[in-house]
Design a protein around this nucleic acid. Sequence first.
DNA 1: GTTGTGACGACTT
DNA 2: AAAGTCGCCACAA
Length: 115
Amino acid sequence: MARANDNHARIWKVIAGIPRGRVSTYGRIAERAGFPRGARLTAQALRAAPAKLKLPWHRVLNAQGRIAIPENSPSRARQRALLEREGVAFVNGRVSLERYGWQTSLDAMLWRVED
DNA sequence: GTTGTGACGACTT
DNA sequence: AAAGTCGCCACAA
């Protein structure tokens, strides 16, 4: 039986692979880690992620391309700043997943979109 | 062991 | 467009 922390580790691994200047979503990350409907697991893993891992946590947005962190948290503004620093543009508080969404090589192969 | 909650998301009203 | 329902996983009480 896999322990909870093992599942978190699988999520962290996927997040670590998000390229600079691109973003992914809770649902897609979970899916790539082996949890088809585990979007919430991604959120849980992200909250529990040790800073030591230096994960690109800011590149994780919700399925609408919006920052998922609560309004009251200062991390929210920090996430946006970090993304903009990488060239990710916000329009009406939203990021175009069409343009910045991270596509895997496999996806590129299946859907014929750029990697 | 049970229950409620949440940095979520797909579906259905 | 907006709100409700349900699935999923970890965690706190």
